[in-house]
Nucleic acid binder design. Structure first.
Lengths: 332, 332
DNA sequence: TTATATTATGAAAACGTTAAACCATTCAGA
DNA sequence: TCTGAATGGTTTAACGTTTTCATAATATAA
């Protein structure tokens, strides 16, 4: 099981390993005949350089880590493609880790990534204080926070204006002359969800509507949770006439529940949802939604990371906030 | 930018690097006081072993490659989680690559993965002949093909019975007394899609229904394509009364188009779709669908790969075919 | 006590690269 | 013809680990 090394190539071409290395790197200091010969034996031996050996001498691996909560959440695949397509251009690869919002898992992954000496990290942090990131910082491994930010270490970041998105979503419902507006969504402790909740209450406030605690269902996790939340809120004595769905999973639960309750959208209930994914247009009626530039969030954070890794760009950390837009369809 | 190495730990603990290495691995004998001291300085120096250096001496990286077509296809995230959750238990990490069905990209990724000396590969091949896999085979790097198979090298594989799934889907429509049944889907050259097409025609055949070429729309790629296909097929002089959607993207296109045409499902048109994803239940009406055990496909292929990497299990290649099931809802 | 086995440790080589320093040709120019 | 510069190559050390082998110290048995 002996593997083919640069020395084998050297021996077979009757030159030194250095010369082979030069040929591989296209370095000028090698004569055409020798280059030819070396390339030939590389091909004939089917030699491929060992990146791990390279990594230890070059002190760079060309690998980045991508730590997110769960690729199954439809937000992430597009984000990932934005990142991947960007870093691939500079020949970086990506190790993917799913934390499931679990800080213990997160720390374990971060340790592994550190040991693998990744050149950079893109992370959707599980919380606002990720102590292990200090270790990355101390070793000058660039970090980009995406979708959420962290406060115990300064990093570049790319987020979306969740607050404003939720604000205009809620306002849209108000302008359609709704007063009794529910919100259904996940855990407020998650940065993005918290911001969306703020946007919702702020919009009600701005328009002089007092928030009704019964209309606030922020604690779901699964589609079934959201379905149940919807069932509950629309079974109230005075049910809402509209609902703001704070995430894509809640949108699914809401549609399922309303279908079951035979409520017609938008006749009986109006909906605006956060996240404009491909399938929301197939719903009946198609969803009016807040659209995030998901791919661009990914691409931008990857660009930021590349800049740092290649020591280009400004030295101050960049904190970028991209904006959302309202896509009007027929659910309100 | 000097990094902390095992030698620094050694020096600071007044022992040799060997001893530090032994402490870290905890297997061989080292006296309690020394162990204590070493662990202490590891902590105080915040030392983390360099996995790349380890990789070159151990000849294993604890990394696998996952090469698939596009993580944005909702089939893949679940597959990925099945794989990840399985390999994580054995402390493997995963490099993810999206080929976009492009063999050139695929070959480039495979070369990179080879150079990184991954311990194993899980791949959804773009086609039936991936010559670069020969190189993996020659180096005894285990390969598992998933969802599709390859014919120029023998590998383990995990696929789903697409043929049978499509067969029972079509049969379901026939049994609901439909005779004019369309199929809308992607490129038949893709293994899974080809199988589904076979299942469709075979079901018609079995029940003595002659296939109508006008009802066959197999060439779409985007949701817009499928939407257009649907529009076209239902604008025929004698339109079909039912449609089999051969993939999840086509399901979206079909629902959008039928909504636009104001066709009622299932009154005007019945549908059965391939792939039972979370959002199909939120459609109106909820989709009757062929369900694949996606997570399990991933978990199984990862198990197969682990077996090979750890040199356990049988030496003959395993070719596993998992079965699909029909989830009946209200679209037919 | 001495001989032997056991335990704890270290030195050095190896893994597969790259880079710095060096050496031997060849070529230009006077 | 000689000098100096290119040119094309090699030798050696370094990167951060693990592993093999040797050795010193200690424990056990006779």
């Amino acid at each position: 099981m002996k593997s083919i090394t640069i020395k084998d190539v050297a021996k077979n071409s009757k030159v030194s390993a250095t010369t082979v290395s030069r040929v591989i790197h296209g370095n000028s200091k090698v004569s055409p005949k020798v280059r030819e010969k070396v390339l030939e034996t590389i091909k004939s031996l089917n030699y491929f350089p060992n990146e791990n050996a390279r990594a230890i001498v070059n002190k760079r691996t060309n690998v980045i880590g991508l730590v997110l909560t769960d690729i199954s959440n439809p937000f992430y695949p597009t984000l990932l493609r934005g990142i991947e397509n960007t870093i691939n251009k500079s020949n970086f690869s990506m190790i993917l880790c799913n934390t499931d919002e679990n800080p213990t898992k997160e720390e374990r992954f971060l340790r592994i990534l550190l040991e693998k000496r990744i050149d950079g990290l893109i992370i959707v942090p599980t919380g606002p204080d990720i102590s292990f990131l200090k270790t990355f910082e101390a070793r000058n491994i660039p970090i980009v926070c995406v979708d959420r930010v962290v406060r115990n270490v300064e990093t570049d970041s790319v987020v979306v204006d969740n607050f404003h998105g939720a604000f205009i979503a809620t306002e849209k419902l108000i302008q359609s002359s709704h007063q009794r507006i529910a919100i259904i969504g996940g855990n407020k402790n998650i940065f993005t969800i918290g911001e969306r909740f703020r946007g919702y209450t702020e919009a009600l406030d701005t328009h002089g509507i007092v928030t009704n605690q019964d209309y606030i269902k922020m604690g779901g996790f699964t589609i079934e949770d959201y379905e149940q939340d919807t069932l509950n809120v629309f079974s109230l004595a005075t049910p809402p006439t509209a609902v703001f769905s704070a995430g894509n999973l809640s949108t699914i639960g809401i549609y399922i529940a309303l279908n079951k309750m035979k409520k017609k959208i938008p006749r009986d209930v109006s909906i605006v949802g956060f996240d404009d994914l491909v399938w929301v247009e197939a719903l009946t009626p198609p969803l009016t939604a807040i659209s995030q530039p998901i791919y661009q969030i990914g691409a931008t954070s990857a660009q930021l990371l590349l800049q740092r890794m290649l020591h280009e760009g400004p030295s101050e950390k960049q904190n970028i906030m991209l904006s959302t837009s309202l896509v009007i369809r027929e659910s309100c």
